[in-house]
């Protein structure tokens, strides 16, 4: 079995072409990154606003919990049926938003209250407090949220191949439909590998982005909050 999977993975013919591994990997990555970027554009400002003002925090928790319960496959197939296959992209965004939102929100909430109080007492305006104090200190949890969102989206992109979105899941599904287990398994390995590598890349990016002082302070206490895949 293992040898067959390896044979499939190492066969150059499987890598090239419009439905080949390279093209599908690229598509998989593109969809996932696109969905997370859109989710970040929506959820980060919202999370910052809610965290900064404290308004609507019940919404974040309630919305987050409800979204967690939504079955990804159900959402993807429903959207595909109601619109068309590519509407599954919207499902990816929708599923990525809660993780980014809750990461951003809890990041802002986790900024030491005394630092925010001091910022206020020193004469920072509301906007200055948000940009100069809350946002930089929220970055570890915010980026944790982005990483969780990426895990979620990577996994859902694979699932969304079922409705014809494309990506590495496409190879897996077609393998399943034709009973070619080595194709399924090979694609599964690639999907797993891509997810792990993307997470590593995001972890590296996060280290670059988070200010050193915040990393040092976090090393003393906090950890990254977990979402689901």
């Amino acid at each position: 079995m293992i040898t067959e999977i390896l044979a499939w993975l190492t066969d150059p013919a499987n890598w090239s072409g419009a439905d080949g591994i390279l093209a599908q990997t690229w598509l998989h990555l593109l969809y996932s990154v696109l969905a997370v970027v859109v989710a970040v554009l929506v959820a980060v400002p919202l999370g910052l606003y809610i965290g900064h003002t404290g308004r609507g925090s019940v919404l974040v928790v309630g919305f987050g919990n409800a979204m967690r319960a939504l079955p990804t496959l159900g959402l993807v197939t429903l959207l595909a049926m109601m619109f068309r296959g590519s509407a599954a992209l919207a499902a990816l965004v929708v599923l990525a938003i809660p993780a980014v939102l809750s990461g951003t929100y809890s990041g802002v909430r986790a900024v030491p209250a005394h630092a925010v109080d001091a910022a206020r007492g020193m004469g920072m305006t509301s906007g200055q407090r948000l940009w100069k104090v809350e946002l930089p200190n929220a970055l570890p949890l915010l980026m944790g949220g982005v990483r969780n969102a990426m895990l979620q989206v990577m996994a859902t992109t694979a699932v969304a191949a079922y409705v014809g979105l494309g990506g590495l899941g496409q190879i897996l599904i077609s393998g399943q439909q034709t009973g070619a287990y080595e194709r399924m398994a090979g694609a599964a390995i690639l999907i797993a590998l891509l997810a792990v590598l993307t997470d590593l890349a995001l972890a590296g990016f996060s280290r670059l982005l988070v200010p050193r002082g915040v990393l040092l302070a976090a090393a003393k206490s906090g950890t990254r909050s977990r979402w689901r895949r």
Binding site: A115, R120, G123
Partner: peptide
């Protein structure tokens, strides 16, 4: 204006309230 007023008044609190991300 509160922000302007506060910039002209020194403010020290219990936990120092230093910004973790700044030297």
């Amino acid at each position: 204006d509160p922000a302007v007023l506060r910039r002209g008044i020194g403010y020290v609190i219990q936990q120092a309230g230093l910004f973790p991300h700044r030297t």
